[in-house]
Amino acid sequence: MLIREYGYRGAMCDAAPGPADVVAATPRPAPGPAVDPIALEPVDEVMVTTLVDNVYDALLPGDERTRRAGFDTGHAAAPQFEGGKTATGLVAEHGFAALVSVRRGDTTTTLLFDTGLSPDAMITNADRLGVDLSGIHGVVLSHGHFDHVGGLAGLAGRRGARTLPMVVHPLVWTRRRLAVPGQDMFELPTLSKRALNGEGFEVIERRHPSLLVDGCVLITGEIDRTTEFERGMPPAHQAWTGSGWEHDPLVIDDQALVVHVRDRGLLVLTGCGHAGAVNIVRHAQRLTGVGRLLALLGGLHLGGPAFEPVIPPTIEALTAMAPELVVPGHCTGWRAQHALAAALPEAWVQGSSGTTYRLSAA
């Protein structure tokens, strides 16, 4: 997996979030020189298969761009049924994992973007879908939250003896906790770099944008926070600084995956979208010089009282971009799903574990 590095500096690249939470979350221009645009090579086709999402619905219909997984994806022994077995379908959990295959000419490369919450959900779904995870060319982690990296435990046993490159932000190892008033403190499980190295993953830490797959896939690195309304996580989300716990509004390790579908525009894939969906898309457009948004897939983190006020300006901005496909998943929240479906009825598609989205060049 070719990795080409760029010296672009995103907003707040070199400073950890401090106690001045409002100031830290205030949009600002990106400091220092930028490599703009990055030469992202167009592809002939991209296929994104959601291996893990919060939802699994076997009755959702497909169409020319969407292939759904039904009840026939798996079976389990069950003596209570005639024939001794029953259909299992797929696993849904509070997590996200996607398989991304890009084709340019006769060459196809497949990356794994996030791995879900539990050690076994992703590999269970991959097995039931007939996906051979030993054939992936690399792993990209959107950020360090445990509901996106938990499946690494299961993947470790499937990759074979070869070394597998893994692209992460250097702050993916950050200790974090949720300190909700009136509730018990919950420290989030934290990834171990030492353990991953010991299992044969080739960990590649990048703050800046990286081009993978001979220049066909862009990993954004840190994302500029330029909107006035996407201000990040509430005070309950905290990070360990080495001497104490402080509010971590930015989740600065949040990054997205971007593909340019020839003559059609950008596909942007997010994990949780902590940087804000609009910030992420605009950042991808600025980096690549491609103004057209073809598709937005993944978690948009618009659920719950802290984020629901962000729904209207997010939808206004996304509507102006006029994407052809919008698949909000994972942490988007039901209110945002309903609002996006109403505002973008031709583009919005309900996500579900096991769904494959196919976008081809014009």
Score class of each variant (00 low, 15 high):
residue 52 V to L: 02
residue 9 R to K: 12
residue 44 D to A: 11
residue 316 E to Q: 15
residue 16 A to V: 10
residue 76 A to G: 07
residue 102 V to Q: 04
residue 15 A to W: 10
residue 244 G to M: 11
residue 169 H to P: 02
residue 189 P to I: 11
residue 122 M to F: 08
residue 150 G to A: 04
residue 308 E to V: 11
residue 269 L to F: 05
residue 245 W to F: 14
residue 60 L to W: 12
residue 168 V to Y: 00
residue 56 Y to L: 12
residue 80 Q to G: 13
residue 200 G to K: 08
residue 287 L to T: 15
residue 237 H to L: 10
residue 298 G to I: 00
residue 97 A to G: 01
residue 312 P to F: 06
residue 168 V to I: 05
residue 350 Q to C: 14
residue 279 N to E: 09
residue 200 G to W: 06
residue 286 R to M: 15
residue 250 L to M: 11
residue 161 A to K: 09
residue 134 S to Q: 12
residue 260 H to L: 15
residue 179 A to G: 13
residue 222 E to H: 04
residue 163 T to W: 00
residue 45 E to H: 09
residue 173 W to I: 09
residue 10 G to N: 04
residue 227 T to A: 10
residue 241 T to S: 15
residue 267 L to H: 08
residue 155 L to Y: 09
residue 48 V to Q: 02
residue 74 G to N: 03
residue 105 G to R: 06
residue 312 P to D: 07
residue 308 E to Q: 10
residue 35 V to M: 10
residue 107 T to Q: 11
residue 144 G to E: 03
residue 362 A to M: 07
residue 83 G to M: 05
residue 16 A to Y: 05
residue 279 N to C: 08
residue 149 V to C: 09
residue 7 G to S: 13
residue 143 H to G: 02
residue 48 V to P: 01
residue 50 T to Q: 08
residue 351 G to V: 01
residue 231 R to H: 11
residue 325 L to C: 07
residue 319 T to Q: 08
residue 135 G to D: 10
residue 237 H to S: 14
residue 169 H to E: 02
residue 165 P to G: 01
residue 54 N to Q: 11
residue 184 D to E: 15
residue 193 K to W: 01
residue 211 L to H: 09
residue 85 K to Q: 10
residue 51 L to Q: 04
residue 294 L to H: 12
residue 298 G to E: 00
residue 156 A to W: 08
residue 30 A to P: 13
residue 291 G to S: 14
residue 232 G to C: 09
residue 195 A to G: 03
residue 240 W to I: 15
residue 56 Y to N: 12
residue 110 T to L: 05
residue 169 H to A: 04
residue 121 A to I: 06
residue 229 F to M: 12
residue 335 R to S: 08
residue 99 L to T: 03
residue 160 G to R: 06
residue 34 A to V: 04
residue 294 L to T: 11
residue 304 G to K: 04
residue 262 R to T: 07
residue 101 S to K: 13
residue 11 A to S: 13
residue 128 R to P: 04
residue 254 D to F: 00
residue 188 L to S: 06
residue 226 T to P: 11
residue 28 R to Q: 03
residue 306 A to T: 15
residue 167 V to S: 00
residue 328 P to A: 00
residue 299 G to L: 01
residue 78 A to T: 13
